[in-house]
Design a protein around this nucleic acid. Structure first.
Lengths: 194, 194
DNA sequence: AAGATATGATATACAGTGTACCATAAAAGA
DNA sequence: TCTTTTATGGTACACTGTATATCATATCTT
């Protein structure tokens, strides 16, 4: 695993895929495309990865780790503050986000990671949640759909609002919108305003 | 176009695809699978459709038409009444909905149709919308993400709530949740309660 | 310097798409 | 009913892309 040649090959392949994603759709990338771009032998690919999905998974995993350290910067830990962090991360990785959202497999994976995160936040605030009509997992799913919908909209827009504007929309539409529905707290006494 | 043989072939192919979708993933269906199931010659497929996507598009189009006549039953025309209609339609077409949501191409198409519908509703209620921070197309996108997220959750759940329960959740989480955020109206004087 | 191993190149098998061709069956029109 | 038209089945073939096997060579580790 420490062999320089192995590290070089894997590095070249990952770089090749990231590069290709800004030129063509993820689904259209072939193994020949990758080995040509990385300038390595075709068969060599299979000595490291099972498939393009397998290679993408490695990039995706590193990407998720990057996102998690990124959103953890704001140690206050509240949802609405993380909104701006999320959109900053998206802005800096537009191409990769677009590719992930284009792929059914990886948008699903991304959603799963995100849902776990949101579930954690909701569990932390469970004492404020009074709604018996909306189950907790439906609420989590709803926030995830809303957030990822907003991110997706922002990615596809040709003249997108700034990160700050998106943070504002995020707070208004998703945090307040959902929270008012689920919350037993007085609107003037919501947790993020304490 | 009126040739009995043509109609027969196309009918058999559509039936074969619908049948196969309850047995395997949409992406995995090959043309050979279809012609074997329909019991027609392989080359015959290409005399009618370009690709599996092309065949699926025909099924999808008929499906969308069915949905539209379905949701039009409730002539009052309000969002929250259509919630139950939507979930009724999903319940009666679970397999097809699952296949559509599994396919990036068709979930996108479905989303586009739905978004046009929601945009129409929002435009009808534009006088109630006061929010200057949330653009109208972001609001429409947000409702669509929320609704389709909820439908998707319902489809994947092994012990899903009833249609009536889903209608209730829909009204609370999506209609009221979003509307309160966008609306200038007094909560006791929202349009659907008039 | 010697042994281990990753790579490049090539051949091969395989699955799936898409086209061309022709004999045959079935439909449409008189 | 007879003739013409056309859709179908079957087959062969070219093409793309995946995946494995093999072997000489280059590169790395110790």
């Amino acid at each position: 695993m420490t062999d320089r040649r192995v590290k070089r090959t894997r590095r070249l392949l990952k770089a090749a895929l990231v590069e290709l994603l800004s030129e063509q759709a993820y689904e259209s990338v072939t193994i020949r495309d990758l080995t040509d771009r990385a300038d390595i032998g075709y068969a060599t690919f299979f000595r490291h990865y099972d498939s393009v999905n397998d290679l993408m998974l490695e990039i995706f995993t590193e990407f998720i780790q990057d996102l998690e350290t990124y959103t953890d910067r704001t140690d206050e830990g509240y949802f609405e503050r993380e909104g701006t962090s999320l959109f900053e991360h998206v802005e800096e990785n537009r191409t990769l986000y677009r590719s992930i959202f284009e792929s059914h497999t990886f948008s699903k994976k991304f959603r799963e990671h995100f849902e776990a995160l949101v579930r954690g936040h909701l569990d932390d605030r469970s004492k404020y949640i009074s709604s018996k009509e909306v189950p907790i997992d439906v609420a989590a799913q709803h926030m995830v759909s809303s957030i990822l919908g907003l991110v997706n909209w922002w990615l596809m827009e040709n003249t997108p609002p700034s990160v700050q504007q998106m943070g504002k929309i995020y707070e208004l539409l998703i945090i307040k919108g959902t929270w008012q529905t689920l919350s037993s707290a007085n609107p003037t006494n919501l947790p993020w305003e304490v």
